[in-house]
Design a protein around this nucleic acid. Structure first.
Length: 641
RNA sequence: GCCGACUUAGCUCAGCUGGUAGAGCAGCUGAUUUGUAAUCAGCAGGUCGCCGGUUCAAGUCCGGCAGUCGGCUCCA
């Protein structure tokens, strides 16, 4: 007999060799029906796999992350089985579950090309195979037998994977006529996968190496219940509506034309208003915190970037240098070296530190054409950059200050962020400066993060070449992750630029530099902001804050006088004096997502009032002009909702 | 840059197996003076992304290029 400990602490006795399914059945029939796998002492097991010793177990269903992984991984196998049926000779790379579904990388037989139009047929085949309800069978095998099997099958990809598994236990999973090299775990049978949905086809390099063959990657997802699939599809449609590229065009925020160049967005008047508002918000916060704002040119002598070390490290992602009178200049790929020149331009005393230099600095980076994406990924963008030159003693407090400022930014917009400590990996070529300094700054960053109680994860290999970072990452409407804010510790640049300050001891010392950008890039931040608000900007940010809608010509004077009063308060107002019905004016104000519409007719004029309509909420009734002014004053500050 | 798909009026989209381009909205003109999501009528608007090929004939078929989209790779 073995003792099985359940998550609630109950210990039950089972015969040795009992399976997850036995345990599930002993708890309830419903659980057994929904169970997809069992976690045995932190190791996922198939429900049919015998358990032979005492264990702590947890049965997982689709509502658990592990359950979804098992479900989607099994769906990937089901799709592979369908593909093998439809395209004999297809070879398989890897087919893992991902955050939202799964993919499988496949090498199709010669001459076969797959497009999204082929997906429904594959999906139909999957449904057909699922109806057979074939069990997923775990088969333990030997490395030699596995090699023999895939040699016979001619699948060089699986053979290559096996090369890396020489010393491990090898298992196959088989369902129906399909056998795959797989560690597992899988659902009991294909019948669980009732609602598969294949989503897209893409190219992907074998093992992520661009020198190797491009395989066809098919993305999909699946659900145990129809309603879940429907909800998923509805969510994707909602995401499409929020897409900043669509809203950016509709709301006339920005423009990208091939004539100007890919990845070089032009800010239209509406977008410029939003951006200036954001800049003003951050500028005010920075003034409170003792920053000095500067402006630097868009190009700089190549020597500057050779000194900083950016040039050799990032030659691939810079525009080619421009040659003028035998001197070479680079389109500015970052602002840091310019700011270092400012710090170094005169002797600095320890009394001047921390010295904080900020700039909304526009930089240009060469991004591969296939990478360009609306405002999220561009070739010219503006960083809300700043560099803080401080002493070693001041470093931790300064990091805390900038992390707090960054958090204030995200809090103001109500955005969910995840925090990554971006550290170096073992690839020494990627980084400058000596290892001891790296270890020190990584430790300092981690200390600060712990002291502040940040929830974070560590990203190895994500550091900048000159130092580790704290990065703030958010998701766009369709779930893609983007890095926005960043805080970086740098011991390398002070050395490279020989930056110094005179200490209290009258000796020269090296400052430490913090690089930071709470928004990251204005372009990317605004792309996320558009999707975050679905284009419905809060009052203080909206390009047009108030539409005044007179009922008829007789009310125009009242309306325009009112508009002038609001404008004098610094509000952005539009008066709709067109010869149109009020219904039409209301409709268009709503479509433009203007936060407040004020309807004015004879009734309002008599009371020195307006009728208030809030975007997305509807008619709020009459309000006196004085009350509306007070309301708008209250709403016109950053963070007000 | 690589793989795949897409590209028709300012926007959203029709256009069957090749026969010479259409709608709604936006725009312009006129009528209407209007009470909380689109008043009515008329007019105008396109070398169907670009270049080449097949054909009596190409928006439609084929090839090349560009741009966009979804991925891959990359991202100071």
């Amino acid at each position: 007999m073995i003792n099985i400990t359940l998550p609630n602490g109950d210990v039950r006795e089972f015969a040795s060799g009992a399976t997850g399914m036995d345990i599930a059945l002993s708890i309830s029939e419903g659980l057994a029906r929904n169970a997809l796998g069992i976690i045995v002492n932190d190791v996922p097991y198939d429900l049919s796999r015998p358990i032979t010793s005492d264990a702590r177990v947890r049965i997982v269903t689709f509502s658990d992350d592990e359950g979804k992984e098992i479900f989607w991984h099994s769906t990937a196998h089901l799709m592979a089985e369908a593909l093998e049926g439809l395209y004999p000779g297809v070879k398989f790379g890897i087919g893992p579950p991902i955050e939202q579904g799964f993919y499988y990388d496949v090498d199709l037989p010669d001459g076969v090309k797959l497009s999204v139009e082929d997906l429904p047929a594959i999906e139909a085949k999957m449904v057909e195979l699922a109806k057979r309800d074939s069990p997923y069978q775990r088969i333990e095998t030997t490395w030699q037998d596995a090699v023999a099997y895939f040699t016979e099958k001619g699948d060089q990809y699986k053979l290559e994977l096996l090369e890396g598994l020489k010393d491990s236990e090898i298992t196959f999973y088989q369902q129906g006529d399909f056998t795959d090299l797989c560690r597992g775990t899988h659902v009991p049978s294909t019948g669980h996968i009732k609602f598969p949905k294949l989503l897209s086809v893409a190219g992907a390099y074998w093992r992520g190496d661009e020198k190797r063959k491009v395989l066809t990657r098919i993305y999909g997802i699946s659900f145990p219940k129809k309603q879940m699939l429907e909800e998923f599809i509805k969510m994707r449609e909602e995401a499409e509506r929020r897409d900043h590229r669509k809203l950016g065009r509709e709301l006339e925020l920005y423009l990208i034309t091939p004539m100007i160049g890919g990845g070089l967005p032009v800010w239209l008047p509406n977008g410029t208003l939003v951006r200036r508002r954001l800049e003003a918000f951050l500028r005010d916060e920075q003034v409170k915190r003792g920053y000095h704002e500067v402006i630097t040119p868009h190009i700089g002598n190549l020597e500057l970037y050779k000194t900083s070390g950016h040039y050799p490290y990032y030659a691939d992602s810079q525009f080619d240098p421009i040659t003028v009178e035998d001197e070479q200049y680079l389109l500015k790929p970052m602002n840091c070296p310019h700011h270092h020149q400012i710090f170094g331009s005169k002797p600095r005393s320890y009394r001047d530190l921390p010295y904080r230099v900020s700039e909304f600095g526009t930089v240009y980076r060469y991004e591969q054409s296939g990478e360009l994406n609306g405002l999220s990924r561009v070739r010219g963008f503006t960083q809300d950059d700043a560099h803080i030159y401080c002493t070693q003693d001041q470093l931790k407090d300064e990091i805390k200050n900038v992390v707090e400022l960054t958090q204030l930014v995200f809090r103001t917009f109500g955005m969910d962020v995840s925090t990554r400590l971006s550290f170096r990996d073992d690839n020494a070529d990627k980084y400058g400066g000596d290892l001891a300094l790296w270890e020190r700054s990584q430790a300092e960053i981690k200390d600060v993060a712990d002291e502040m109680g940040l929830e974070y994860f560590i990203g190895l290999g994500e550091a900048a070449f000159y130092g580790p970072k704290i990065d703030f990452i958010v998701r766009d409407a369709i779930g893609r992750k983007w890095q926005l804010g960043t805080v970086q510790v740098d011991y390398v640049m002070p050395e490279r630029f020989s930056l110094e300050y005179v200490g209290a001891d009258n000796a020269k010392h090296r400052p430490v530099i913090i690089h930071r950008a709470p928004f990251g890039s204005m372009e990317r931040f605004i792309s996320i902001l558009i999707e975050h608000y679905a284009g419905n900007f809060p009052f203080w940010l909206a390009p047009t804050q108030v539409s005044i809608l007179p009922i008829a010509d007789a009310h125009h004077t009242y309306a325009t006088d009112l508009a002038a009063e609001f404008e004098a308060m610094g509000l952005r107002v539009n008066v709709d004096t067109r010869n149109e019905k009020i219904n039409r004016k209301v409709a268009e104000s709503e479509q433009k997502k203007v936060p407040y519409a004020l309807i004015v007719g004879s009734k309002e004029i008599d009371n020195n009032a307006v009728s208030v309509r809030i975007h997305g909420e509807g008619d709020k009734g009459q309000m006196s002009v004085e009350d509306v002014k007070a309301l708008f004053r209250r709403l016109n500050v950053p963070g007000a909702a």
